[in-house]
Design a protein around this nucleic acid. Structure first.
Length: 499
DNA sequence: GCGATCAGGT
DNA sequence: CACACCTGATCGC
């Protein structure tokens, strides 16, 4: 959960993705994307009143975000105060104090963030330096070097601070299969199922959030069909999406939802209640998009895991992996990095919220901490699926190697499907009729590669009280990152962090 | 009745 | 182990 309080040190009269408390006094608002955890306070009556009295306060976002936002009647009052901006079009904005008349100019540029429809990063350029607020993002390695507005000529712009989506900024999440790999895995599973008969249907068990649209589009395109969803209203001005979704239940691919949809599925019913025309029972499989992550050296595993007789998990991530974030940061080399997510291991309490939620500066507090590298005892990833019956293993004590488990909680079956495939990177496991998984193989690719080397590491500290990285350590790290050297990252001290 | 918060769920 | 969101209970206004 984002713990970003809404404001940046350099431009404190701006509020982004938070609209409550102190943010009620902002001179301008920015919304990076239309997910509820970035919209706190956005429908508040206080804010509504402020807008009615203001001549200058506006909300800036992408056109798509505006469209999605206004689709919800609770936010309809924003309509006349939203200024949608084109992507990659630097726009000057005046930050005006309406009481004093004091004014500050800033240029903002929206950069596509790859998180969900309409999601953007905001690049601010003004008298307090260049600052990048990433919002939530997923960018493949290398994409940052192709973002024109982060460059000036052939040179990377000097970035004073990055306010970072640090959701997976943790070496445990070293790798997440690419969007393309995940999509093709899902496609293969869907295709193998629905081609068997018209009564074979797929239920995509997606959350109630924007971000699955590209999945619908790709499946719709591939199978020349539309995906059944509950409502089309939010897409009415977005033809690229609209043409791939439908409220007509007569399709083999569903992403509809119902408050009791899991129960429905257990009873072999779709959430929409659809049945076959001739009374033949439907053959339904569910595919639940879930984040799967893998270790530094393991690229070999399935993006689809069978979790029950008719249930599958499919790899799907809205957020960049650790290595993607590392690529992003090492390319931009910001002076400061402010993680948006409170590092694991603690929950925010009333007392700590105020202090920990505030931005932290590399030099002063500690967005980053250098730790000693651990010897690479085991460099393979133990991809296990927790089936909910096992005790939480104790293996994640200090004896745990830097491998980590792929644990899929919430599975209803006893069926273990770990280490599904150790050889075929993108191949999924499909067993339409066979319930057993006899070809299951132990994760035997635990070959320890030899290049383990001692070197520095950094991760997000558990608490603001933990040790501050020394300046020389940081510069050393940055030099390595800049040189493209392989840097080993250790597990964060999430377990040992005593609180 | 409303909003905010929390616990618990998927 | 994460996320984004929902429901329902509780509290305060």
């Amino acid at each position: 959960m984002s713990s970003f309080a809404g404001r940046m040190k350099e431009y404190p009269t701006i509020s982004l993705d938070r609209f409550d408390r102190e943010n009620l006094h902002a001179r301008a608002y920015f919304l990076s994307h239309c997910h509820k955890d970035h919209m706190k306070g956005l429908k508040g009556p206080l804010l509504k009143r402020k807008l009615q009295f203001s001549r200058t306060v506006r909300l800036y976002c992408s056109f798509v975000t505006k469209e999605l936002l206004l689709n919800n009647p609770k936010y309809a009052f924003w309509e006349e105060y939203i200024v949608p901006l084109e992507l990659e079009s630097p726009t000057q904005i005046s930050l005006v104090d309406e009481a004093s008349g004091e004014k500050e100019e800033v240029v903002v540029t929206l950069l596509p963030a790859g998180h969900c429809p309409g999601s953007v990063m905001f690049l601010f350029e003004g008298s307090h330096g260049n600052v990048l607020y990433t919002g939530d993002f997923r960018l493949p390695v290398g994409d940052v070097s192709r973002m024109e507005h982060l460059h000036s000529g052939s040179r990377v712009k000097d970035i004073q601070s990055i306010y970072l989506d640090s959701t997976f900024y943790d070496p445990r999440f070293y790798q997440i299969p690419s969007r393309e790999v995940c999509l093709s895995g899902i496609s293969e599973l869907v295709g193998n199922w629905i081609s068997q008969s018209p009564h074979h249907v797929v239920w995509l068990n997606c959350k109630a959030a924007y971000g699955y649209e590209y999945l619908f589009i790709n499946l719709g395109e591939e199978f020349n069909t539309q995906i059944h969803v509950n409502t089309l209203a939010m897409f009415k001005k977005m033809p690229e999406i609209l043409s791939y979704v439908t409220t007509d239940r007569r399709t083999q691919i569903h992403a509809c939802r119902h408050p009791k949809d899991e129960e429905f599925f257990q009873g072999n019913r779709l959430p929409c209640g659809c049945t076959a025309a001739d009374g033949t029972p439907l053959r339904i499989i569910s595919i639940k998009p879930s984040t799967m992550w893998f270790g530094e050296r393991t690229k070999k595993t399935s993006v689809i895991i069978k979790t029950g007789g008719s249930s599958y998990r499919a790899c799907f991530s809205f957020h960049s992996s650790y290595s993607e974030i590392k690529d992003f940061l090492s390319y931009l080399q910001p002076v400061n990095i402010y993680p948006s997510v409170i590092p694991i291991g603690r929950t925010l309490t009333e007392g700590t919220l105020e202090t920990t939620a505030l931005p932290v500066c590399v030099e002063e507090s500690l967005p980053l901490t250098i730790t000693d590298a651990q010897p690479a005892a085991h460099n393979y990833v133990d991809c296990t699926e927790s089936n909910g019956e096992e005790e939480e293993e104790e293996e994640q004590q200090e004896t745990a190697p830097d491998g980590f488990s792929l644990t899929l909680s919430g599975s209803q079956s006893n069926h273990s499907s770990q280490n599904m495939d150790s050889c075929l990177p993108d191949t999924l496991i499909i067993q339409p009729e066979l319930d057993g998984q006899k070809q299951r193989e132990e994760g035997d690719d635990g070959i320890i590669q030899s290049e383990s080397q001692q070197s520095s590491d950094f991760d997000i500290p558990c608490t603001p009280e933990s040790k501050v990285p020394r300046r020389d350590e940081l510069s050393q790290l940055y030099r390595k990152l800049a040189a493209g050297e392989d840097i080993r990252f250790v597990k964060p001290h999430t377990r040992s962090c005593a609180l």
